[in-house]
Design a protein around this nucleic acid. Sequence first.
DNA 1: GCCAACGTTGGC
DNA 2: GCCAACGTTGGC
Length: 148
Amino acid sequence: MAYWLIKSEPDVYSIDDLRRDRQTIWDGVRNYQARNFLRQMQVGDLGFFYHSNTSPLGIVGLVKVIESDVIDPTQFDSNSPYYDPKSILESPRWFTVKIEFVEAFTQIITLETLKREFSPEQLLVVRKGNRLSVMPVEIEVAQKLLLR
DNA sequence: GCCAACGTTGGC
DNA sequence: GCCAACGTTGGC
């Protein structure tokens, strides 16, 4: 079982939105490195839900992967902001996962805290200039985060 | 609002 | 295939 971190701008989709929906397809990722991580995810993996572009920044909850290798439907939807005209039905370009809500942390683990407790080598999200929206989290780091 | 740090695009 | 220009992400 692996651990991941997924970023979302709460104005677009927040942990409260996921609590309300209970589950969602993690659509709209249009970066190949992030997609490759999404393709590595397996059912049962846990993800830390991170709020970006907001205040306070940080990890706000936990999610679980409940379906892997999901074809992102928005790539074929010309009305979607994530529409990709270059993607063809026979060989889709963008894959993702379906996730479900596990919990919203009573206290956000702020980026400031993450920077204090983990090095950029341990945790990609604290690395300066990092723009990946989906990234792996080392088991030791994940366990420390879950014990907080 | 600024801008660093990328990723992507397209001319050559 | 190189790389300059451009666009986006996301912290500050």
